Simulated scan of single mutants.
Amino acid sequence: MGILSWILFGLIAGVIAKFILPGRDPGGIIVTTLIGIVGGFLGGWIASHLTGGGVTGFNLMSFVWAVIGSLILLLIYRLIFHRSHA
């Protein structure tokens, strides 16, 4: 899978995570994309440790794990951002 596919996959995962956890976050589409991409890697890492297998390709379970990873990163991002500006 090419880098553009991973960026698109991350963008979609980040947008869904943002939809599940709405709120005012700075950064816009760039931060949402980065959170989604890194969230995909985090979700894959979590999946490989919990299920014993890896995330393979562009499929539904990979997408679910990418969204889970994005949700975790979005929560961490909000905790860090709100503490630094409180």
Rank of each mutant, 00 (worst) to 15 (best):
F9V: 04
I68V: 14
L50V: 11
G40K: 01
T51K: 08
L11A: 08
G14F: 08
I72H: 11
G10Y: 11
L21F: 14
W65E: 04
G40S: 13
P26V: 03
F81R: 04
N59I: 03
G27P: 03
G2H: 00
T33Q: 11
L60F: 06
P22M: 12
S84G: 04
V67L: 10
L73T: 05
F63P: 00
G57A: 12
L74P: 01
T51G: 09
V15K: 10
R24T: 02
L34F: 01
P22N: 15
L60A: 06
A13F: 05
V31A: 02
G39K: 04
I35T: 07
V15T: 15
I12K: 02
T32E: 12
D25I: 05
F41W: 03
S84L: 09
G36W: 02
L71M: 15
I29W: 15
A66C: 08
L50T: 12
G28R: 06
S70D: 04
G2M: 01
L21E: 07
I72M: 11
R78W: 01
A17T: 12
A66M: 10
G39D: 09
L74F: 05
A47H: 13
I7R: 01
V31C: 01
G52C: 08
M1Y: 04
V38A: 07
G36E: 10
S48T: 12
A86G: 14
F81A: 04
S62A: 09
G36S: 11
F81N: 01
L42C: 06
G23L: 08
T56I: 11
T56E: 12
L34D: 00
W45A: 06
I3W: 09
W65Y: 10
V15E: 09
R78P: 01
F63H: 04
A13Q: 04
D25K: 00
H49D: 12
G23F: 12
S84T: 13
T56G: 12
V67I: 14
A86Q: 10
I80Y: 08
W6Q: 03
I46V: 14
F58S: 13
G44S: 15
H49S: 14
A66Y: 00
H82K: 09
G10D: 11
S84F: 15
I12D: 05
I16A: 08
W65V: 00
W65Q: 06
V15L: 14
V64G: 03
I12C: 05
L21G: 12
I35D: 00
F63T: 04
R78V: 03
G10H: 13
S5D: 05
I35K: 06
W6P: 04
G43Q: 11
W45P: 01
L60R: 01
V31M: 03
G40N: 06
G43S: 13
H82N: 12
R83V: 12
R83P: 09
G54C: 13
R83Y: 07
I30Y: 05
G14Y: 10
